[in-house]
């Protein structure tokens, strides 16, 4: 999820406040696929990724593109608007009750020595690792991926070499959204969700991305690990309701000592 956000920010410098809500849509899609078609979310996540890719391309082409030259504040307002529309549409269709997708995997646990390893979480983690690796291979080894990096590096330079920057942005936004789509489907059996969950997910993603460093894939991945470990420890040692205290304290500490994030580059 944070990987998707970092990609969108890194390439377009657009702060996507609709990120969490897109993720909630990925969750609801997994929910619909599971209840109507009997598809397990661990199999359905590619479908969610594809659907969110399309949503991402549409949002980019139709809404972000016309104001891509506008100052940051405008884009933030726009994305907040998109977030509100997505959240309330979900509320209208699915209602306010928390939902949860059932999957047989989510009830399994392996006993490894003195520890219980939750199979669902392990699968989610494995898929996240694979997706991050696949995404970096794509960005570093393919022509389109290199063009995405090039546009992120120097927008004008990309225009100069004759790259179709609009198409590249749409692809990058789509991939970013696809990442959240997949993430949403994968966590839907673990995390109960309802339409307003999107906001807290957006906040968590931002926290991860800022800790890891804006625009860095590795940073997003490591940041994700740090935040989840911090929150789990917080839940164990304090009270579960106080777990965010830990991740946000981490954020403050990182901002104090490394304002650009762990893997971020300072932009002059």
């Amino acid at each position: 999820m944070a990987v998707g956000l970092t990609l969108i920010f890194g390439v377009m410098r657009v702060v996507n406040f609709a990120h969490g809500d897109m993720m909630v849509w990925g969750m609801y899609l997994a929910f619909v696929l599971a209840t109507r078609a009997g598809l397990d979310p661990y199999l359905a996540f590619p479908v969610c990724a594809v659907a969110l890719f399309a949503l991402g391309v549409v949002v980019q082409r139709g809404l972000v593109d016309p104001i891509i030259e506008a100052p940051h504040e405008m884009q933030i307002l726009l994305m907040l608007g998109v977030a509100l529309v997505l959240e309330n549409t979900a509320l209208l269709i699915f209602g306010p009750e928390p939902a949860r997708v059932r999957s047989p995997l989510a009830r399994l646990a392996w006993e490894v020595g003195p520890l219980y390893v939750d199979v669902a979480r392990l699968v989610t983690f494995a898929v996240a690792v694979v997706l991050t690796l696949a995404l970096s291979l794509f960005l570093y080894r393919t022509d389109l991926g290199r063009l995405i990096r090039a546009s992120a590096d120097n927008h004008y330079g990309a225009l100069v070499i004759g790259a179709d920057v609009r198409r590249i942005y749409a692809t990058a936004f789509g991939i970013g959204a696809a990442c959240v789509g997949a993430a949403g489907a994968l966590v839907s059996p673990i995390l109960p969700f309802q339409p307003p969950t999107g906001l807290s997910l957006s906040v968590t993603s931002f926290n991860i991305v800022i800790i890891g460093g804006m625009g860095s894939l590795v940073g997003a991945f490591i940041g994700g690990l740090l935040v989840s470990v911090a929150e789990s420890l917080g839940a164990v040692f304090l009270r579960p309701s106080l777990k965010e205290l830990f991740s946000f304290s981490l954020l403050i500490v990182i901002l104090l000592f490394r304002p650009a994030g762990l893997f971020g580059k300072r932009t002059p």
């Binding site: 290199r146 990096r149 090039a150 590096d153 120097n154 330079g157 100069v160 070499i161």
Partner: peptide, 14 residues
């Protein structure tokens, strides 16, 4: 207007 965080080879191939 190069791509500063990419390698010389990548810049050329782009």
């Amino acid at each position: 207007q190069l791509f500063p965080t990419m390698t010389v080879g990548e810049n050329l191939e782009l």
